[in-house]
Computed example of a mutant assay.
Amino acid sequence: MDLFDDLPEPAQTSGSVSAVVKAQPQSAEEEKEEERSAKRKREDAKCHADIKEEEEEEKEEERGEIKKVCKEGLPVLKGYVAARRGEREEMQDAHVLLPDMSNCLSALPAQVSRVSYFAVFDGHGGARASQFAAEQLHHNLAKKFPCGDTENVDKLIKKCLLDTFRQTDEDFLKKASSQKPAWKDGSTATCALVVDDMVYVANLGDSRAVLCRMEAAADGQRRPVTLALSKEHNPTIYEERMRIQRAGGTVRDGRVLGVLEVSRSIGDGQYKRCGVISSPDLRRCQLTANDRFIILACDGLFKVFSADEAVKFVLGILQEESMEQRPGFTDEGRFEAACQQLASEAVRRGCADNVTVILVSIGF
């Protein structure tokens, strides 16, 4: 015999219990007890709700405090620029300074507080490619920049930079080929994207970016160290020459087809089929309290200055005691003077090319 045969069906159980409950009369005391119990439950529920609300407010305040601390701990960046035409008939360089790029971005990733952007473009064959890159590249970057609650922001930013350079090059080549006659302009590009305290440098061609970092020496003194944040691209470099030759191009007198001095660029449509590409090299560096400044400059500066010489020249002006005696002396005034004097010194040393220097001060 199945033991479960003795149990009533669920429907019968529910119905019979319900009927019994309804049939039993309640005393006045029981009714009062029920009311008191219900009141206690309502008070407990309200108390729990108040506690939960207070906890949420505390968490929100904590999140706000954390965000505030993060923002206060970020480096303060200020950009200064100096441009000299030199002996050229036309100024073919262009530049962009955006210490706060937030206005260009629809939204930031949840873990990012600030984005800055600085860039120098050295045109050749005309100024149209450099001007186009200066006007469009950071807008393309803003459209592709990661947003929301994303994981692995570092990887996404690197992909964003690669896609941005490709898109900017394609857009310019499309515009250049539609002209009659077609534009043959090209441009180098060196861009520093600073995301909170992490600087990403993407570059094409022979414009360069260097960082001045102060490090303690054995004698206890702080000495400047020059860190390269970019990599030059010219046809004499083995990897660059091999790529050009595999694409059917040649390198003569250190130039692509004996003409173009750089092996990567924006524009230069007539050389793209010869292995000249627009894929930038990417480098990343976390800024620290030991960092003083970044120099972004076209090759006009580095034809007459080594990277170390440029850094020491700027430091010399920043540390110049006589500047403290000048009316209205400020740290900004020091950096502005250093930037202007560095560009002027490059011309004085005999650089006949355009010279553009961006000096980015770093403060914590």
Results as ranks from 00 to 15, higher is better:
M1V: 14
E9Q: 10
E9W: 02
A11G: 08
S14Y: 06
S14E: 11
S16G: 12
V21N: 13
K22V: 08
K32D: 15
E34Y: 09
E35Y: 02
R42D: 02
E43I: 07
D44R: 15
D44Y: 13
A45M: 07
C47F: 13
A49S: 13
E57Q: 14
E61Q: 14
E62W: 07
K67L: 11
P75Y: 05
L77V: 01
K78T: 03
G79F: 00
Y80M: 07
V81W: 02
E89V: 00
M91V: 13
M91T: 14
A94H: 10
A94E: 00
V96W: 04
P99F: 03
P99H: 01
C104L: 15
S106M: 11
Y117F: 11
F118M: 06
D122S: 06
D122G: 01
A129H: 08
Q131N: 12
A133L: 02
A134Q: 08
A134I: 10
L141T: 07
L141G: 02
F145W: 08
P146N: 00
P146F: 06
C147G: 15
G148Y: 03
D149K: 10
D149W: 02
E151T: 11
V153P: 05
I157G: 08
C160K: 02
C160G: 07
T164M: 04
E170H: 11
K174E: 14
K175L: 15
A176C: 00
A176W: 03
Q179E: 15
P181M: 10
P181Y: 10
P181T: 07
A182Y: 04
K184L: 15
T188I: 07
A189R: 00
C191P: 03
C191F: 04
A192F: 00
G205I: 04
G205N: 00
D206N: 03
S207W: 02
R208C: 05
R213W: 00
M214Y: 07
E215R: 12
A218K: 13
G220M: 01
G220Q: 06
R223E: 15
R223Y: 11
P224R: 07
P224V: 04
V225I: 11
A228Q: 12
L229G: 01
E239G: 11
Q245C: 13
R246Q: 12
R246W: 09
A247Y: 08
A247C: 10
D253S: 14
L260N: 06
S263W: 09
G267H: 05
G267D: 03
C274G: 06
V276R: 09
S278K: 03
A289P: 00
N290R: 09
I295F: 04
L296T: 07
G300V: 09
K303V: 02
D308H: 01
E309Q: 13
F313I: 07
I317P: 01
Q325E: 14
R326D: 10
T330R: 05
Q340S: 09
Q340E: 15
L342A: 06
A343R: 05
S344F: 00
S344D: 15
C351E: 14
V357Q: 10
I358C: 09
I362P: 01
